[in-house]
């Protein structure tokens, strides 16, 4: 999948309580979750995010709780891919399982700033920063995890294949 969008830039250790605070977990409606996404550190995000915008974070993005509400809130905000230096483990697998591509690029993430426009090939993991001219390559997804991503998430994969 090829996407192009403007960057919302966040720092290290963005935790799932920040992505979607627990007080909003009395619903799992994606649109409702999206309307509160990131509020505790960035009140403008939920109001101003445009479909196709990209989210970029630092180290250990998505740390904390296992709530799948977090990647769902981001995906339902219209963000097609999240790029970070590294992802917390449960968030990473949740992203794959719900069909939200997550690209890990290590310290290279420092070269992406808020408002930059990126062109991203989510399958090949190629990120072009159209604002600065830099190009980055993300670590590829391992083995059959690629098949899960290609199927559009784990549920689709299980329905297609019948088992893991």
């Amino acid at each position: 999948m090829e996407v192009k969008g403007k960057v919302w830039r966040y720092g290290d250790n963005i935790d799932t309580d920040v992505i979607i605070p627990a007080r909003y977990l009395n619903s799992f409606d994606p649109a409702e979750l999206a309307s509160h996404c990131m509020v505790d550190i960035d009140e403008t995000f939920a109001q101003k995010v445009q479909p196709g915008d990209l989210m970029v974070g630092g180290k250990n993005f998505g740390c904390g709780s296992s709530r799948e509400h977090a990647p769902i809130a981001i995906k339902a905000s219209g963000v097609p891919v999240v790029i970070a230096a590294s992802f917390a483990r449960i968030f990473y697998r949740n992203g794959i399982n719900i069909g939200l591509p997550l690209l890990e690029i290590g310290d290279a993430v420092e070269k992406i700033n808020a408002g930059d426009v990126l062109q991203v090939d989510t399958t090949a993991g190629i990120i072009k920063n159209l604002t600065t001219g830099d190009t980055f390559k993300a670590h590829p997804l391992p083995g059959f995890v690629q098949d899960i991503a290609r199927a559009g998430g784990l549920i689709h994969y299980i329905k297609e294949k019948g088992s893991l």
């Binding site: 709780s65 296992s66 709530r67 799948e68 990647p71 449960i90 697998r93 949740n94 399982n97 719900i98 998430g153 784990l154 549920i155 299980i158 088992s163 893991l164």
Partner: peptide, 14 residues
């Protein structure tokens, strides 16, 4: 280990 709801759903089914 902790997982998300999709892993959980598939775990309950399979």
């Amino acid at each position: 280990t902790g997982v998300g709801t999709t892993d959980l759903a598939v775990g309950m089914a399979t």
